[in-house]
């Protein structure tokens, strides 16, 4: 019983973090058609900004939202500086991989210079522990499990029930036609990056509340998010969300039965298998579009 509870809990928790990261990657891919390799750095930067604000004496309830909003600005600026100028060039996908990697590296080393290599921690969302189904869990992790689906549902509502969300979905499907109905395509690109960066920053704040932070804390979650989007299909945002939880459960089960050591190898095994059997991802339709 406690084995199942542990896997279930671990899966939900990891899945939440992966979903938060993967959705941002998918949002940027579907709207702009580029892959953002500085996404992991967004996560780190969100956590550090939150830490800094708490250090300045702000309560967490104020500091965290500010950090998320600041991250939206960071995402917008990054988009405007290293993505937008390249749009329309040949090989845009590859070129943007390089520019976002470069920008990510700069930000990562900037963080190292500003905040130093020593590990830090930010306050948990809720202090304390609980025992559920014979498994001891922290309330912080419970909070993440509850909050993440709410945020993802809000994002889904935004994309599917608002005019601005409709505009974002439209840009994802046909850029010329979007221009011709009068959409501000550049602003929508910026918005996609801003939302993605905010979500990544929030994931960073979640992570910084239970694990030690370092300037390279984003690279492993970025890798996992990549696995998630390849597995779930990057052409929608619901695919990666389901995939994130599946991968979360898979990882929890693997580390329970086979140990942490084998888990990454098995994850990549799943990834390779997916690429061989269904290269567009298991939840993907064959077209690009947000839904």
């Amino acid at each position: 019983m406690s084995a199942l509870a542990e896997i279930l809990f671990g899966g939900l928790f990891q899945g939440s973090l992966y979903a938060m990261m993967a959705v941002g990657l998918a949002l940027v891919w579907t709207t702009i058609g580029v892959f953002n390799f500085s996404h992991g750095v967004f996560m780190m930067l969100g956590a550090y900004i939150a830490w800094q604000l708490v250090e300045f004496g702000l309560p967490a309830a104020v500091a965290f939202p500010i950090a998320v909003v600041v991250m939206a600005g960071v995402g917008w600026i990054l988009q405007a500086s290293v993505v937008r100028p390249l749009i329309g060039r040949p090989n845009i996908v590859l070129v943007v991989v390089i520019t976002t990697l470069a920008a990510g590296s700069l930000i990562e080393n900037g963080a190292l210079t500003i905040w130093g290599p020593r590990s830090k921690q930010i306050p948990a969302l809720i202090d304390g522990n609980a025992t559920i189904g014979g498994v001891g869990v922290s309330l912080h992790q419970i909070a993440i499990i509850v909050i993440t689906p709410l945020i993802l549902a809000a994002l889904w509502m935004f994309l599917n029930r608002t005019r601005l969300g409709l505009a974002l979905r439209a840009v994802a499907q046909n850029e010329d036609a979007s221009h011709l109905v009068g959409l501000n395509v550049t602003a929508l690109y910026g918005l996609a990056f801003a939302i993605a960066a905010s979500l990544a920053g929030l994931a960073g704040i979640f992570m910084g509340g239970y694990r030690f932070m370092s300037p390279v804390m984003g690279s492993d979650p970025l890798l996992k998010a990549l696995i998630v989007v390849v597995f779930g299909g990057i052409s929608s945002i619901s695919g990666p969300i389901f995939a994130a939880y599946l991968i979360g459960f898979f990882e929890a089960a693997c580390s329970y039965y086979f140990g942490l050591y084998w888990t990454p190898a098995m994850l990549f095994g799943v990834l390779i298998l997916t690429l061989m059997v269904r290269p567009e991802g298991i939840f993907a339709s064959r077209s690009r579009g947000l839904a």
Binding site: R163, L180, G289
Partner: peptide, 29 residues
Amino acid sequence: VGTGLIHVPQGNRLFPDLSIADCMALGAY
């Protein structure tokens, strides 16, 4: 588009995964 000069491009590619209702809402953007 804001001046009222509207262009229907060739090839009806449009927005394949949006509904007709969505397209009409976009037209009135």
